Every structure is written in C-alpha cells, then in structure tokens.
Simulated scan of single mutants.
Amino acid sequence: MGQALNTAEQAQRAAAASQTRVDQLDDQTRALLERFRAASWQAQQLTVYADQLEEIATRQADEKQSLQRQIEAMQRTEAELLPLMLRMLDTLARFVEMDLPFLATERRERLDNLERLMSDPEATLAEKYRRLLEAYQIEVDYGRGLGAERAEVDGRVVDQLRVGRLALFALTLEADRAWRWDAESGQWVDADSGLARSIRQGLRMARDTAPAGLLVLPVAAAEAVQP
C-alpha cells in the first residue's frame, strides 16, 4: 500500500514537472512570437522607408536635371539677350544725342549708369533689363507735356521750356531775351520777343504754379514718314 502511494506521488510530481516545462515552453513560444511580430513590423517599416527614400532620390534627380536644363536655358538666354540690350542702350544713347538738348546732365548720367550696370558681373540679367526699360520709359515720358529747367544759353542763365519733344525755348530770368532751339542747325537762335509772355506762362504751367491752359508757341512741323 505504501509503495503504491509513493508511486502515485512520484507520478504527480512528474506530471507537475512536465506541466511546468510545458508552461515554460509556452511562455518562450509566445515571447518568440512577439519578437517575430516586432521584427516583421520593423522590416515592413524599413521597406516602406526605403521605398520613400528611393522615391525622394528619384524626384531629386529629376529636379536636378530640370534645374540644370533651366540653368542652361538661362545661359543661352543671357548670351542672346545681353547683346540685344547693348544694342538697345546704344540706340538710346544715339537718340539722346540727336534729341533736343534738355536735362543733358541727368540723361547723360542715366546712360553712364546703364553702361556700368551692363558690364557689372554681379548684376542680374533681370535687373539690367528692368533698368534699361525704365530708361526707355523715362525718355518716352519726356515727350508728354511740358518741362522746365534752369540752364545757360549764350553765357546767360535762362529758364528752358520744353514742349514735349516738339520744341525747346529759353528765356532770360529778366525776360528780356528769348531763344528757340533750331533742330536743323543744331543751335539756339533768337526768338521773337513777343514770345516771352507765352514762354513765361509755359514755364509756370510746367512748374505747376499756374493752371494748364492754351499756349501759342511755334513748333516744327512733323515730317512725313518716307515709305
């Protein structure tokens, strides 16, 4: 009877040990499964990240090629546009030289500044083009309305009156002598003394010290354009 009890007790202990080992194996299995799942998730994340990096690298390569093409296009544009702007500047300079002799210092300084700008390697092509167009616009605006400035004619200080680009007159400060610019001869000639009043009125209008009104002044007739 005692032997049978010992045998049963041993069997129970063996079963308990076996269960313990099973439980341990089950715990290890669950731990390994969790580690496998974590590793799989990390692998998936790394795969997604690698795909994203590849896509980013592809886009960067495309952008680099696009930028390179733009740079090359800009270089070609600069090579073509800069000579054109230089020709435009030369045309403007010749026009100023042949135009009525008004605001000579201001206009010459503007041309000199443009010449320096065109040869400045630090200045952008856009800035050069903008300033050149600005100079052209200023010259266009000179042809509209009246202009007045203090100058010197025949050694006397005078007030000059510009009527657009049609005519240029000068009047001494004492209003005792008047001139008009003769474009054909390229020099000042005496004007009819009766013009002094109109010139003086035009000067006041140009300086906004008198309201706009009708001026009676001789201007050169426009020449017909030859076909």
Rank of each mutant, 00 (worst) to 15 (best):
residue 206 A to Y: 10
residue 52 Q to G: 02
residue 145 G to V: 06
residue 153 V to M: 10
residue 138 I to M: 06
residue 3 Q to D: 12
residue 113 N to E: 12
residue 4 A to Y: 02
residue 3 Q to R: 15
residue 160 Q to I: 15
residue 130 R to I: 05
residue 150 R to C: 10
residue 220 A to V: 13
residue 222 A to F: 04
residue 137 Q to L: 08
residue 63 E to N: 14
residue 12 Q to V: 10
residue 41 W to T: 13
residue 116 R to P: 01
residue 48 V to D: 11
residue 29 T to R: 12
residue 189 V to C: 04
residue 108 R to V: 04
residue 130 R to G: 14
residue 194 G to T: 14
residue 62 D to Y: 08
residue 95 F to Q: 14
residue 168 L to I: 05
residue 2 G to L: 13
residue 22 V to C: 05
residue 171 L to H: 03
residue 129 Y to S: 11
residue 92 L to T: 06
residue 192 D to V: 04
residue 77 T to L: 12
residue 42 Q to P: 00
residue 139 E to L: 03
residue 78 E to T: 12
residue 36 F to M: 10
residue 132 L to N: 00
residue 132 L to E: 00
residue 18 S to G: 06
residue 193 S to E: 13
residue 9 E to D: 09
residue 25 L to V: 11
residue 206 A to P: 02
residue 125 L to V: 12
residue 86 L to Q: 15
residue 129 Y to R: 06
residue 70 Q to F: 06
residue 54 E to P: 01
residue 22 V to W: 08
residue 89 L to K: 09
residue 53 L to I: 02
residue 102 F to V: 15
residue 9 E to C: 07
residue 60 Q to W: 03
residue 120 D to M: 03
residue 55 E to F: 04
residue 141 D to G: 07
residue 101 P to V: 07
residue 31 A to K: 13
residue 99 D to A: 15
residue 158 V to P: 01
residue 26 D to E: 14
residue 51 D to T: 10
residue 85 M to D: 03
residue 142 Y to S: 08
residue 151 A to E: 13
residue 169 F to S: 01
residue 15 A to L: 09
residue 23 D to W: 02
residue 97 E to H: 12
residue 180 R to H: 13
residue 40 S to W: 05
residue 47 T to Q: 13
residue 19 Q to F: 02
residue 21 R to K: 13
residue 176 D to R: 08
residue 197 R to A: 15
residue 222 A to C: 05
residue 44 Q to D: 08
residue 152 E to L: 11
residue 208 D to R: 14
residue 224 A to M: 11
residue 35 R to C: 07
residue 177 R to Q: 15
residue 86 L to P: 01
residue 38 A to L: 08
residue 91 T to N: 15
residue 23 D to S: 09
residue 80 E to C: 00
residue 54 E to N: 10
residue 207 R to D: 02
residue 119 S to V: 08
residue 155 G to T: 12
residue 182 D to C: 11
residue 206 A to I: 06
residue 199 I to E: 02
residue 2 G to A: 14
residue 37 R to Y: 07
residue 129 Y to A: 13
residue 182 D to I: 01
residue 67 L to T: 08
residue 123 A to M: 05
residue 136 Y to W: 11
residue 168 L to C: 01
residue 85 M to E: 04
residue 62 D to S: 12
residue 214 L to Y: 04
residue 142 Y to E: 04
residue 49 Y to M: 09
residue 170 A to Y: 06
residue 46 L to D: 15
residue 170 A to V: 09
